[in-house]
Nucleic acid binder design. Structure first.
Length: 314
DNA sequence: TTTGTCGTAAACAAAC
DNA sequence: GGTTTGTTTACGACAA
């Protein structure tokens, strides 16, 4: 990593899920994906996960309607929104995971090694803004909250001079990837100055790609975001995918299997994420025979699929 | 060398 | 009036 190690921000789930997908990016093509179909047995779920699974709401139209700036119902059918992924990930908040490429095995009770968190993150400001917005429940943030997210997740910016804030605003204004929304004065979130900012859906793939490249460049030969304490089913070089046994990995469910996946209709492939310790697993339907590269394309190109699906529905 | 991207600084106006 | 927000311009570093 160019700038040393960083503590990965405690992405909420959608980004963590993105991270999970990012771990696949350097995979060689045409790798057989071991079908991993299970739900983990209830006994293998952590109490938190079990509670989360019980209390989580299904993928809501509301979430879909909230992602694109306009909260009206006209956006409800816009499935390019990743809120559903965000929501399902909320079933189990993920812990900040070390992004170091080597994660020493710790003895029980041993404190984790200090992480050099004060070095400058490798992410561009566009990526930072993107992550901040995507990590927000409403998928929209005022500038002030973007600052707050950056500062709280990247300690480097706590002590950095104020110029970076200018850069954030500069990026928001200049980049086509972000859209300014007038605050709805009736909303509680609208208290404050300025507008809200959201991610333009048509530029989300590019932003994802930017993030992916950052991870590919700065975190090679590792599971990047979710480096496991246990051997990761995805080997560091992604040369194979080990069939996972629930009793072997004490899986914590991240996504609720009973949820209706908005992408499961119209032949879409349903993706599930499971977390085992510090590693997330992408779980495909047992009948799927996809190489990892295809999975990546599927994930990065969800919007294209959605567009195609919408056309087919006409 | 050219081009595009990114980060940074600065100036300015408008809104709060 | 001070602060924050948003826009714009300019410049340098860097990589392709």
């Amino acid at each position: 990593m160019k700038n040393g190690s960083h503590t990965l921000p405690p992405f909420s789930s959608s980004l963590a899920a993105l991270g999970g997908s990012l771990t696949l990016t350097s995979s060689p093509p045409s790798l057989p994906l071991s079908p991993v179909s299970f739900p983990p047995s209830p006994t293998s779920l952590s109490p938190a996960a079990a509670e989360s699974a019980r209390s989580s709401s299904p993928v809501s139209d509301l979430a879909a309607s909230q992602c694109l700036g306009q909260g009206d119902t006209s956006d409800q059918d816009d499935l390019t929104c990743l809120s559903w992924l965000h929501q399902r990930g909320d079933l189990l908040p993920l812990q900040p995971l070390s992004k170091v490429t080597t994660l020493p095995q710790r003895q029980p009770g041993q404190l984790p090694p200090p992480v050099a968190a004060s070095s400058k993150p490798p992410y561009s400001f566009s990526s930072l803004i993107f992550m901040a917005i995507e990590d927000s429940p409403q998928k929209r943030l005022p500038v002030k909250d973007i600052y707050g997210w950056v500062v709280s997740n990247f300690p480097y910016y706590k002590t950095a001079t104020g110029g970076w804030r200018n850069s954030v605003r500069h990026n928001l204004s200049l980049s086509k990837s972000f859209r300014r929304i007038q605050r709805d004065k009736s909303q509680l979130q609208s208290v404050g100055k300025g507008s809200l900012w959201c991610v333009c859906p048509e530029y989300r793939p590019a932003l994802l790609e930017g993030l992916r490249k950052t991870h590919s460049y700065h975190g090679t030969s590792s599971c990047l975001i979710n480096k496991p304490a246990l051997p990761c089913p995805l080997t560091p070089d992604h040369e194979e995918l080990v069939t996972m046994e629930p009793h072997e990995y004490q899986l914590h469910e991240v996504s609720e299997d009973t949820e209706k996946d908005p992408l499961s209709d119209s032949g879409y492939i349903e993706l599930h994420y499971y977390e085992s310790d510090q590693c997330q697993y992408l779980v495909l339907p047992s009948e799927s025979e996809l190489d990892l590269e295809t999975v990546e394309i599927l994930q990065l190109d969800v919007e294209a699929q959605e567009a195609a699906g919408s056309l087919l529905d006409l």
